[in-house]
Amino acid sequence: MAKHRIYTTSFASVYPLYVAKAEKKGRTRAEVDQVISWLTGYDPKELEAQLERRTDFETFFAEAPRLNPSRALIKGVVCGVRVEDIKEPIMQEIRYLDKLVDELARGKTMENILRK
Results as ranks from 00 to 15, higher is better:
M1K: 02
M1E: 04
M1W: 08
A2E: 15
A2W: 13
H4K: 14
T8H: 15
T9F: 02
A12E: 09
A12G: 05
V14W: 11
Y15P: 02
P16G: 09
V19R: 02
A20G: 11
A20S: 15
E23S: 06
G26C: 05
R27V: 07
R27C: 12
L39P: 01
L39W: 04
T40W: 01
T40K: 01
G41M: 08
G41Y: 07
K45H: 01
E46W: 05
L47W: 04
E52K: 11
E52Y: 04
R53C: 03
R53S: 07
R53M: 03
T55C: 06
D56V: 04
F57I: 09
T59Y: 07
F60P: 01
A62L: 12
E63P: 08
A64D: 11
N68L: 09
I74K: 01
K75L: 15
K75D: 10
G76F: 13
V78K: 12
G80Y: 04
V81P: 08
V83C: 10
V83R: 06
P89R: 15
P89A: 12
P89L: 10
P89N: 13
Q92A: 06
I94Y: 07
R95G: 10
Y96N: 12
L97A: 04
V101A: 10
D102A: 06
L104Q: 02
R106L: 12
G107E: 00
K108Y: 07
K108F: 08
T109F: 00
E111R: 03
N112C: 04
K116T: 06
K116D: 07
K116C: 02
